[in-house]
């Protein structure tokens, strides 16, 4: 089973990397790009034998407690197959 965990800064948190990328894109002539926010994702492979329910629970736990910091970031878990 494979899963993907997305982590990104909360909308209220300044993202200077995203702003710099947006500025660079505008400089390259992509004038329609109004804003960029940069985040990251983790591709995770689960050990065989885990049920979908167990996997969902464990993924939510690691996404909340380890992969993201709830003070500044939001996360989203997707089970891919």
């Amino acid at each position: 089973m494979k899963a993907r965990v997305y982590v990104a800064m909360k909308p209220s948190v300044l993202d200077p990397q995203g702003q710099t990328i947006c500025h660079a894109l505008n400089g390259l002539g992509h004038k329609k790009i109004a804003a960029v926010r940069q985040g990251k994702y983790f591709d995770i492979t689960l050990a065989e034998g885990a049920t979908r329910e167990e996997a969902a629970q464990e993924l939510d736990e690691i996404a909340r407690d380890v992969l993201s910091n709830g003070v500044i970031e939001d996360y989203r878990v997707e089970i891919l197959d």
Binding site: P16, Q17, V71
Partner: peptide, 17 residues
């Protein structure tokens, strides 16, 4: 200390990058 929740808030990338 902020990650551990012993102090509030967080420390992120400098605004100058």
């Amino acid at each position: 200390l902020t990650e551990a929740g012993l102090l509030p808030g967080a420390l992120v990338r400098n605004d100058t990058l």
